[in-house]
Computed example of a mutant assay.
Amino acid sequence: MFISPMLLETAPGPFSHSNFIYEPKVDGHRLIYSQQAGVVRLYTRHNNDCSRQYPELLIPFDDDIILDGEVACTDPSTGLNDFEAVMSRFSTRQHSKVQQLIKTLPATFAIFDILQYKGQDLRKLPLMERKAILHSLNFPSRSFGVVPHIEGAGEALYEQIEAMGMEGVVGKRKDSVYVSRRSKDWMKVINWSYADVYITGYRKAEFGWLVAVPDTLGKLRPVGIIEHGPSSKHKQAFRGVCQQLVTGHDKDYVYLEPKIQARVKMRNWTKSGLLRIPVFMEFII
């Protein structure tokens, strides 16, 4: 049984409030763990069955249950969540390769909510009552754990998260019921990284600006595509300038002299040196 998850609104910045608890934001992908009549199925937030990708999480609890959390992998060199490792697990379907990855990139289920247990729907209970039930469970293996939380001190937690290079903080209202939609009762604060880039082209079809940064020799290397952030005024200003800078084109892209510079925020740099989810902030003049 799948339950559509409760989604986060974005807070303008770190905040503290006595009516909220705060959790580290786990850098993985959302997972609904559903055990019905003793049979376990795993679902993404979009109701895609991903049970065969994570066989180490198909272990049943002592009774039927539905849990909400994130599936994550840990980088052994840093001890931090490794998003690219999780995506590698998620994209692998072949049984023999999955069995290898269980050993080299083991998945863990970081649980932060319980939605059903022993046939009871718990979603209308206040969050702190659901947390108490969650903390009382016996977990079936070491692949399962509860995301820790603190009360009230959101800004202090964010400072620690920022210093450790983790993804961010989630603030949740203590009395919040569980709703299958986006809600201001749950707020995320992302620990963004920043970079200055050159716009080297644009996509002909849907919106996208190609961007690059100088390498150690000063030569520009591509680092991804900006798809989010610019306002209609930013796009209009870009269109007014870019036609003078065209150097060529192909089926999908128009290429430009690297004269336009922009600042972006992003989740982090990927291991292959690309921007992860870059968001345009401003032009650099």
Rank of each mutant, 00 (worst) to 15 (best):
M6D: 01
E9M: 13
E9N: 15
T10E: 13
A11L: 07
P12I: 05
P14F: 07
N19F: 09
I21W: 00
Y22E: 02
L31W: 02
L31R: 01
L31V: 11
S34G: 00
S34M: 04
S34C: 10
R41I: 05
L42T: 02
R45V: 01
R52L: 15
R52I: 14
Y54D: 01
E56D: 09
E56L: 08
I66Q: 01
D68P: 00
E70S: 04
V71H: 02
G79S: 09
L80W: 04
M87L: 14
F90R: 14
F90K: 13
K97Q: 14
T104A: 10
A107G: 08
T108A: 13
I114W: 02
L125Y: 09
E129F: 09
K131G: 01
K131P: 01
H135M: 14
H135C: 15
S136W: 08
S136H: 09
F139Y: 15
S141A: 10
S141D: 07
R142H: 15
A153Q: 15
L157H: 02
G165C: 06
M166N: 05
E167W: 01
V179Q: 12
M187G: 01
N191Y: 03
D196N: 10
V197M: 02
K204M: 09
F207Q: 08
G208D: 03
T216K: 13
T216C: 11
L217Y: 14
L220N: 03
G224S: 03
E227F: 06
G229V: 05
K233H: 14
K233P: 02
Q236W: 10
R239I: 14
L245G: 03
H249W: 12
Y255D: 00
P258A: 11
K259T: 10
A262L: 04
K271C: 03
G273F: 00
I277K: 11
I277Q: 11
V279E: 12
V279R: 10
